[in-house]
């Protein structure tokens, strides 16, 4: 009987904890900011976000995609159904064909209410203090429930065993077969004070279609532009509060 009672208690606890944690899901205390010069930290008050100006994004440019693959060692298997895409270019046409097609990159939206994090049984998917939705691949069991839950198709399972490419970026590990991965907003670069690779590449290609910054900082460019310009998020109706905003759709 004890075992049984324990299970029942566990379930009660599960419900209680689920309700208690539901609104914010902050399992860890905010880290003290280390003053040591070589440490980069996720800042608790920050909310990283992106604004994509689709009017500046052209169909023939794939600078952000290739920058992402090189920076994050994302392999391309040549198997369209199973290739990993952290960021992909999408072409939109309205169904009545009354507007010109719109090109835009789609990547993980780093939602405020991420459904992938809600469904992950081991909390391998989690929200970092600065609003990044990340995957702890040490903890991922490869159940793929998050891929089912994500409405943006932002996640991919690693279907093949991969070897690191010859000129691999050592700052980003490659991924073992069987875990799920996705865009990290280049968390490793953010921690060093750099911009994500795609944003940098977009600026280098002289498009400047991707604006990245801290949504909570009233002086940041992204904050200012979101106030002034008419933007939207993908599937706002789902209530996920994505942190990637689009202009010109």
């Amino acid at each position: 009987m004890t075992m049984d009672r324990r299970t029942v208690l566990g379930l009660g606890g599960a419900i209680a904890a689920g309700v208690a944690l539901a609104p914010g899901l902050h399992l860890f205390a905010a880290p003290a900011n280390s003053t040591s010069p070589d440490s980069g930290s996720a800042q608790p008050g920050k909310r990283w976000g992106m604004l994509i100006d689709t009017t500046r994004c052209s169909s023939d440019c794939t600078a952000c995609l290739s920058a992402c693959r090189t920076e994050n060692n994302v392999p391309l298997y040549g198997d369209p159904d199973r290739d990993i895409h952290w960021i992909r270019k999408v072409e939109l046409r309205d169904q009545n064909r009354r507007q010109l097609p719109v090109n835009l990159p789609v990547l993980c939206n780093h939602c405020e209410n991420p459904p992938c994090v809600h469904v992950c049984p081991t909390a391998a998917s989690f929200v970092r203090h600065d609003g990044l939705v990340l995957i702890d691949k040490h903890r991922c069991i490869g159940c793929r429930y998050c891929i089912i839950a994500c409405p943006y198709k932002a996640r991919s399972l690693v279907f093949y065993k991969t070897k690191p490419p010859r000129d691999a970026n050592p700052n980003v590990p490659i991924r073992a077969a069987g875990v799920v991965e996705k865009c990290t907003f280049c968390a490793h670069r953010l921690d060093e004070g750099k911009m994500p690779a795609c944003v940098e590449a977009c600026a280098k290609a002289d498009k400047n279609a991707m604006i990245f910054g801290d949504l909570n900082d009233p002086n940041s460019e992204i904050h200012q532009r979101l106030l002034k310009e008419k933007t939207q998020t993908i599937r706002a109706d789902l209530g996920l509060k994505p942190h990637v905003h689009y202009k010109g759709i």
Partner: peptide
Amino acid sequence: LGRPDNMLLPMVYMNFRSMFT
């Protein structure tokens, strides 16, 4: 599972919002 070697992790780390847990 993609990582069957990790199959006991759901017993160690639990996310009580997940239907799987």
